[in-house]
Design a protein around this nucleic acid. Structure first.
Lengths: 177, 177
DNA sequence: TCCAACCTGAATCGGATCTTCCGGTTCCGC
DNA sequence: GCGGAACCGGAAGATCCGATTCAGGTTGGA
């Protein structure tokens, strides 16, 4: 692939992500092409249809998240800290976006394995945190993951905003549980 | 209004709500008409366009919620219990739906007053609960409302599921806060 | 009985996605 | 530098799908 084509492809992914984040999943292909400073034909050369574009963005984000989870997990930290750092990473990511775009009716065919992998990593972390005693044990690891995901996939979520804080506090183990 | 017209109007509202709940905000007008056992033309006689239909459903739901909040508030209960009962009521309601439908790009012109009123009631409750000492004081009443709303507007939220429980626990006042 | 109010659903409108295509432009090996 | 393969631009048109309209049949109820 020629260098300029490579550049353009990345430009498209970046701009599409920005537009989705700014204006929701309904952005038209033409707007995406315009934002990237390219013709509509070029957009379709790189991605045969809208679905392919969305899937690529989603896959990139999931791969990034997976890598980050592995990186943080490898550190010598309490699992609780790892979980909160993963959460912090997520608030800066367009994961909420991916969730909502996926709801559009676009089934996740090739995304599923990635999604499952990330879910597995997160559940593993959650379970370790429960064993370590920092996360309450009266809920399942899957529940922990869902709560984290809910906290982090809100529009405008930030790592240290009150809402995120409260949800994380709810997860902590308490004396009586 | 003729009796059959009245009946049909209500049928439409009911079926539309069910469909939105089951299949998301993207349901077509035609499907709604079919579900109600009516022609598409009839649907448009009662609601000039999709927006009008959605607004009517939303207004109904908000009016119902407002009434319920007032009813529960009038009881001689700790405000915390009132809050949790309001939350429980919401999990049985299509409020999540309304939120997501509203995001579609349909601005809320006549819905705003209703929404503001409900928000005001909820914030008032939250503040009283904070004064009463059952809700933590290190966040604003608006944050409390947002957390409640997040907890309750999840797809599949139930009053007693683990996720709802954890989020409510996060709101409780603790010895150290 | 009668008719205004109702209902129906095929046809129309509108807007977005997707496809095509060819002249012009740009990279990159030589 | 040169040449050509790989790219790009963007107008034009096919297609799809949901929203909306309307001419004509149906029905509640006085």
């Amino acid at each position: 692939m020629r260098a300029d084509a490579q550049r353009n492809r990345e430009r498209i992914l970046t701009c599409a992500l920005d537009l989705f984040a700014a204006r929701g999943p309904g952005v038209s292909m033409e707007d995406i092409a315009r934002a990237a400073g390219l013709g509509i034909g070029t957009l379709y050369r790189h991605f045969p249809d809208r679905r392919a574009l969305v899937e690529e963005i989603a896959a990139d984000a999931l791969r990034g998240l997976g890598a980050e989870i592995r990186r943080l997990s490898a550190q010598e930290l309490p699992r609780w800290d790892v979980l909160t750092q993963v959460a912090a990473y997520c608030t800066g990511q367009p994961l909420a976006l991916i969730k909502s775009v996926g709801d559009d009716g676009l089934a996740p065919p090739e995304r599923a394995p990635l999604q499952d992998e990330v879910d597995g990593l997160l559940r593993g972390l959650a379970e370790q945190a429960q064993r370590e005693g920092t996360v309450r044990r009266d809920i399942s690891p899957a529940d922990v993951v869902e709560i984290l995901s809910t906290a982090v996939c809100r529009p405008g979520a930030r790592p240290d905003d009150p809402v995120t804080r409260v949800m994380l506090d709810g997860l902590r183990a308490t004396a009586d549980a």
